[in-house]
């Protein structure tokens, strides 16, 4: 199968996947107890008032009807308006996308070189002191809950030593890079561990493989063997994990945003679910599903480029 046909087929499957995810989320939000009308009517709800708000918002129409018109709008690039504030959903998403993108891009820019470097260094000194120490650290930090690490770091560097601002509340992320340091460290802690371990394992395998041994017999220099012949093969498995991480970062990292008070997509999601703001939740689901599909597609294409035979069968 050629690369282009593969990409087209994957895009088609991806469109179906987006539709399915959106349907699931619609059904889940339908099942939420109470709706935006109840949430809007306040603490002391009057049934008649709730009925009026419902009729005004179109919540009294059958669910299928509403889902249909919502899909119709989606086909035209219209995600509807927020039930709570009346603002277009697209405006919400654009607001949240800024901070989320800043964090995601910076995290990725640091993540890839750092984890590849750690993995390669550990692999080249397999069994050595450096390898044992990095392995212990990466194994240990592998599934550490972000909020716990975050508050320990905030207490130490933000409160006790006063080196860094404890939260990003009200700050312009790009104008004050200091507020980004702690969130980035917390965001990187888990992915660096998982990816550097994959790179290490891949590199050890690649260095022991037949083609590398053959390259050695041909008298090719050690550096060239390591970086031109072994490394690309070692990276192929790690690409999938980088894709998952990218997906996670773009999905609005709810916990990190909550701890550091960053107004990204994750914060918008939590607020929208609390307010039963169905159109906003739906819009976010579309964004999450589309990024998942696209990120995985790009990862597969990169994987194909790095190690053609590994993807060709799929």
């Amino acid at each position: 199968m050629s690369l282009r046909r593969y990409a087209v087929r994957r895009l088609a499957i991806g469109a179906v996947q987006v539709l399915a995810v959106v349907t699931v989320v619609f059904l889940l939000v339908q099942a939420l107890p109470g709706d935006a009308a109840v949430a809007l009517a306040g603490d002391n709800p009057d049934p008649r008032r709730i009925g009026e708000i419902r009729a005004a918002m179109g919540l009294d129409r059958p669910a299928l009807d509403r889902f249909g018109s919502w899909l119709w709008g989606l086909a035209h690039g219209d995600l509807g308006v927020s039930l709570v504030s009346g603002r277009p959903v697209v405006a919400f998403l654009l607001d949240g996308l800024g901070p989320t993108l800043v964090l995601a891009v910076l995290a990725l820019v640091l993540l890839v070189p750092l984890s590849v470097l750690l993995g390669v260094v550990a692999a080249l000194r397999e069994g050595g002191v450096v390898d044992r120490i990095t392995t212990a650290i990466t194994v240990g930090l592998h599934s550490i809950p972000e909020f716990a690490l975050a508050v320990v770091l905030i207490a130490l560097f933000g409160v006790h030593l006063r080196w860094l601002p404890p939260t990003a509340v009200g700050a312009d992320l790009l104008a004050q890079p200091a507020v980004l340091v702690l969130p980035l460290v917390v965001l990187l802690a888990r992915p660096v561990c998982s990816i550097s371990r994959l790179v290490r394992a891949g590199m050890i395998d690649a260095l022991a493989s037949d083609h590398v041994r053959h390259a050695r017999r041909l008298g090719i220099g050690a550096q060239r063997i390591r970086f031109a012949h072994a490394l690309p093969n070692a990276l192929a498995p790690a690409v999938q994990q980088v894709a998952r991480t990218t997906d996670w970062l773009l999905g609005g990292v709810i916990v990190v945003e909550a701890v550091f008070v960053v107004p990204g997509l994750g914060t918008i999601l939590v607020d929208a679910v609390a307010a039963r703001d169905l159109p906003v939740v739906q819009g976010l689901a579309v964004v999450f599903a589309v990024t998942t599909v696209l990120v995985n597609l790009v990862a597969d294409l990169i994987g194909f480029r790095l190690a053609p035979r590994s993807v060709a069968i799929a």
Binding site: A20, V21, V24, L28, L32, G251, V281, A289
Partner: peptide, 17 residues
Amino acid sequence: LLLAVPSLLVLILTATI
């Protein structure tokens, strides 16, 4: 499909339900 939805989104929605 379930794996394609972010796990914290599933978690928040189902727990609210």
